[in-house]
Design a protein around this nucleic acid. Sequence first.
DNA 1: CAGCGCACATGACAAACGTCATACGGTGAC
DNA 2: GTCACCGTATGACGTTTGTCATGTGCGCTG
Lengths: 206, 206
Amino acid sequence: MTTARPLRVLLADDEHLIRGALAALLALEEDLVVVAEAASGPEALAMALAHRPDVAVLDLQMPGADGVKVATSLRAELPDCRTMIVTSHGRPGHLKRALAAGVRGFVPKTVSARRLAEIIRTVHAGNRYVDPELAADAISAGDSPLTAREAEVLELAADGAPVAEIAERASLSQGTVRNYLSSAASKIGAENRHTAVRLARERGWV
Amino acid sequence: MTTARPLRVLLADDEHLIRGALAALLALEEDLVVVAEAASGPEALAMALAHRPDVAVLDLQMPGADGVKVATSLRAELPDCRTMIVTSHGRPGHLKRALAAGVRGFVPKTVSARRLAEIIRTVHAGNRYVDPELAADAISAGDSPLTAREAEVLELAADGAPVAEIAERASLSQGTVRNYLSSAASKIGAENRHTAVRLARERGWV
DNA sequence: CAGCGCACATGACAAACGTCATACGGTGAC
DNA sequence: GTCACCGTATGACGTTTGTCATGTGCGCTG
């Protein structure tokens, strides 16, 4: 059993420093081999199709397309490839999106390389792994109490646009927009739409 | 000249994965030795005092105290130790703050490890190094047109607090607060304080 | 089918906000 | 020593928001 076929890994992260360092560390693991690296979402996708890795380790924030988008495409185009997300900022919403996209591993960058290698093996074996802390956050954040429209309007309000502009962009009357913003804010427990936007962001509801 | 005293490096980054990987890569450089690692601002400070490194490589965002704060303290307590900042999100304002704190190197995490090693040597030699792209951003963002008070009030407005609360926290009258917010927004070219906050953030003015 | 929740709307009122004029004391520059 | 700019303040004005009541129509679900 010493000559098992090595586990082929794709590494995608826009930070060269991290990516290179990670590749070096994973190379120390005998059963892992990094077959491709990418610095952007589209590049990750292209690399995956070219090299057909067993596991794709994706950074959440990358130029072009974020980790979850890449995972979604990968699921369609390369179903045998397991995907996992590594991230610095673990927002509850991201985790939820990721799991919905078929991602099987979700870990913060605070883990050690050894641990990451273990998790890569876990994921490859067909199991899932979600960082317990992030999972707890996601659960405690709960599901969004917002209706689809409320969320949409809140999102349009995100950059501080006045009601008139939001109304126009959403093709709604100004009164309706105010109603939605008001009910969204009260559901969230914020005193005004701006704090509502911030809180919704933090909880991954927008 | 082969047995020169090695260059002693302190590594501070809250992401274990990155920090470990970085340490491993820097260890490949013959003339560098990582003498200490830290995962938070205070820890970095303590480690520096205990191990007296030649160069401290600090992540910008860390729990406890950010890289710039650590650099400031270090400058006072360990003047011989050069400091440099490594960061993922290079906002213009951070660079300015960092240079003011006596930081001698400022690089994004997109550089390669080899390059980082070179820069560590540059910094140790007493020179400065600032990533050209970040420098260009900082220059094009220009200086803040805001007065000290305007910036302060704008910062208090950052989380969407109403004027009354800002006034209380700044010990100002509500009218004054509104005046400041109004003039700050007009200087920035924003239509209201919320977009003003956002733009000021992007330009590193708060 | 009756009831419920949602999308969407209107009108009205109070509170918050943005803007402007005006004022006065302090500080630094010329 | 005047001039300009800043910090601070007030009062007044119109506009934008937040909130509420109320209404219509639609699609589920019991």
